[in-house]
């Protein structure tokens, strides 16, 4: 009898890229739902727009490169990029900015470097930074969370606002929008208010901004799910949050009046999303365990530095991109000791 020949190992492989990506998509859903709950339909519309733009861009790039279009669409990596990108966007961002950012992320940041596995920068964060630098005003126009908002827009009104910038009669942009907790904390600290005074505003919840902190909790849940399913390891999330907490704690202890308490930094803005979903993007992160700790901790530290003394209230994207650049170097210097090396016996 004749049999086919193949090389070892001859096993059913437990891991698959598309399944890994699917886990990430699933893990993002609770946080995404919370965001939609607190900030309205705009979040959902952003997600859909970004997903369509990203998947189309990916398919187009595959076609241009002469590869089967559905080959890499199936691995869901473009969908993950789109979701992470969309969840960072303000709810009423003009549609074309969402599309532009997502297409840039996929076409320029990912595919022009060779597609999945080859991009040095996190596509979602690079897309976000492109928009933030080029269109700072719409990118920082956030809505107040539903728990404190006086007005809320229906799905149709949101769609109109996103596609035509027209608001329902009697509503002005000023009445709808509100600064993010990070932004307001920063602005008011600059105006010499103390943290205690600032937190008297109804914007604030137990840890961070109202709404924001709860979205953070749901992302945390998704992150723990990824840890449980071993899609990610604890190293990067722990290091990111640890680095951020350490910085925040030190400065809080030095002067609690001008430095918000440490948990504020964790539960405001995108710190949790970053720690579990963005910094853990395997392609652009450090790959050695020791390297991941350094990589994560430095992201946490950069988040604090840029938030506190940089030009933007939120710093996740910048911190991640900065450390993306450093990842290969970190990897080079944190190679594990190979078994049987460096512990030679005396003889």
């Amino acid at each position: 009898m004749q049999f086919p020949t193949l090389t070892s190992p001859h096993t059913e492989r437990p891991n698959q890229v598309d399944q890994t990506m699917l886990m990430v998509v699933l893990a993002l859903i609770p946080g995404a739902l919370a965001m939609i709950w607190y900030f309205g339909w705009g979040i959902l519309i952003n997600l859909v727009l970004a997903a369509i733009a990203a998947l189309l861009s990916e398919a187009m790039a595959q076609k241009l490169r002469g590869r089967p279009a559905f080959g890499t669409l199936r691995d869901l990596s473009a969908l993950v990029t789109a979701m992470l990108f969309a969840l960072a966007l303000p709810p009423l961002l003009p549609w074309w900015l969402t599309v532009l950012g997502a297409a840039f992320a996929i076409l320029v940041v990912k595919e022009m470097y060779g597609g999945i596995g080859y991009n040095p920068f996190n596509p979602a964060m690079a897309g976000y930074v492109l928009l933030l630098i080029s269109y700072p005003v719409p990118m920082t126009t956030w809505l107040a969370p539903s728990v404190i908002a006086e007005h809320s827009l229906s799905f149709g009104q949101t769609l109109t606002a996103i596609f035509t910038r027209a608001l329902p009669a009697g509503l002005s942009w000023d009445a709808l929008t509100s600064a993010t907790p990070l932004d307001s904390m920063r602005t008011q600290l600059d105006m010499n208010y103390t943290v205690t005074e600032i937190r008297e505003s109804p914007l604030w919840g137990a840890f961070g901004g109202r709404g924001w902190e709860w979205a953070g909790n749901w992302f945390l849940l998704g992150g723990l799910f990824l840890l449980w399913r071993r899609v990610i390891t604890w190293h990067i999330p722990a290091a990111v949050l640890g680095g951020l907490l350490a910085m925040a704690t030190v400065f809080f202890l030095v002067d609690p009046d001008t430095h918000p308490f440490p948990l504020f930094h964790i539960f405001s803005g995108g710190a949790i999303l970053c720690a579990f979903f963005i910094a853990t993007d395997p392609v652009t992160a450090s790959t050695t365990q020791k390297g991941q700790l350094i990589y994560g901790a430095l992201i946490g530290i950069f988040i604090y530095i840029i938030r506190s003394w940089g030009g933007y209230p939120e710093a996740v994207a910048f911190a991640v991109l900065l450390m993306n650049m450093a990842a290969p170097t970190i990897d080079h210097y944190t190679q594990p000791r190979v078994f049987g090396h460096g512990r030679l016996s005396d003889d």
């Binding site: 086919p4 193949l6 001859h10 096993t11 059913e12 492989r13 891991n15 890229v17 890994t20 691995d75 990596s77 597609g115 999945i116 596995g117 080859y118 390891t233 395997p282 392609v283 992160a285 790959t287 050695t288 365990q289 991941q292 190679q335 594990p336 000791r337 190979v338 078994f339 049987g340």
Partner: peptide, 25 residues
């Protein structure tokens, strides 16, 4: 022992390094 499908691009996830009993990369 299923026939392995086509290999995809490495996504640098580092599982191989975690699994390596010789601590190689």
């Amino acid at each position: 022992a299923p026939d392995p499908g086509p290999a995809l691009a490495c996504i640098r996830c580092g599982r191989c390094a975690e699994a390596c009993p010789m601590s190689l990369l």
